[in-house]
Design a protein around this nucleic acid. Structure first.
Lengths: 203, 203
DNA sequence: GTCTATAGTTAGATAGAC
DNA sequence: GTCTATCTAACTATAGAC
């Protein structure tokens, strides 16, 4: 569908497309087999290029890993904010449901939990950057809980910071047991968690 | 404190002690740095022996990994059953609290979540064995929930299997954010989860 | 941009002395 | 049982042709 002879006009260069494809397959391979088993050669093979060619796009294997992690939190944030915006007028708790639903979906589809774990094992300099991203991400959920509390929707006596981490953790870990072939949709799991959560903490 | 000249009488051989030490340091290293970064040489160094000597105790690096995973679920099961036994007469929900508390403690102290993740990425033949162990472990918690339900302690309408996985997942993931230097004890986190859980699912 | 070929390094594993 | 020395294989990364 693209015009032939097109050269300087392309918005997205060939290099950018190849780079994106490399990050994509690397992300999948890291999740499926663990960062251990994934060699540069394997990433190259999965992306249908030769191993040496990778180094035109990345300076090192670590750079690939870094790019994989970079995509993670930013992408999740975008999705979650979008989901919240779609129910903009709703109560904080309904927006929280939307946010948690998006978090779960992103986690399941983008191997998010593996990345979150990997971030913590990064060398300090790299880790700090990602941890900052992660705190911003967590703040989205914290803000929704705080708003619900401010509106008097919550029972007193809960540590909302712990509640947030437990709730997000419950869904993050779902990537380890969720079976796409089963009868439950991701939304069903979010609903179950919200039922548990609201009937527990909501007045 | 041991008698000198003792040879054939030792119940625990030198080899067994060395092997146990290797598993211990390997477990710690795998958790702290990720299985990636941990070489046989590094395990040997941490255990204060030379790399070659490892192969007197293990046939391969994979065998070490396997031993590390082997210890995981079995040890957790023992601890959880012990915790339940300590409150033997109590209601199913109080026993559930004890079980979840032991699960969290074991997770925090023995790098359990890393092992659970690693198990899923194992070659099929090894994985099956560990997954069976894991199902037996999960059954402990499932039974307690079922007993609570049978006694009419729970609200209707919950999928207890999902509730169990969410609750256990929330605690399993806590290993990723729990700060031992903070003000919260593991028991506080368990209490917070139980409050959330019971005020939600208990009639 | 991607290929082929290969340099340089390090990993897992073995052999034999002690 | 553990050490030292070493083999082999595999990996990351580079160089130069196209």
């Amino acid at each position: 569908m693209r015009a032939s002879g097109q050269t300087a006009k392309s918005r997205i260069t060939k290099a950018e497309r190849t780079r994106a494809r490399l990050i994509e397959v690397a992300t999948r391979l890291f999740q499926e087999h663990g960062s251990d088993e994934v060699t540069v050669r394997r990433i190259a093979a999965a992306a249908k290029i030769e191993a040496g060619s990778i180094y035109y796009h990345f300076a090192s294997r670590d750079e690939i890993m870094r790019a994989v992690l970079e995509g993670g939190v930013g992408g999740a944030k975008t999705e979650v904010l979008k989901a919240i915006a779609e129910v903009a007028g709703a109560s904080p708790l309904d927006r929280l449901r939307a946010a948690l639903g998006a978090h779960l979906k992103y986690t399941l589809h983008h191997h998010f939990s593996s990345r979150l774990k990997a971030i913590r094992r990064l060398p300090k300099r790299l880790r700090d950057h990602h941890m900052k991203q992660e705190r911003e991400y967590a703040a989205i959920f914290a803000d929704l809980l705080a708003e619900a509390q401010a509106k008097g929707l919550l029972r007193p006596g809960f540590d909302l910071s712990v509640v947030r981490m437990l709730a997000m953790g419950a869904l993050t870990w779902a990537a380890e047991w969720y079976d796409p072939a089963g009868t439950m949709a991701p939304a069903d799991i979010t609903d179950e968690l919200m039922k548990l959560l609201t009937e527990g903490i909501v007045k």
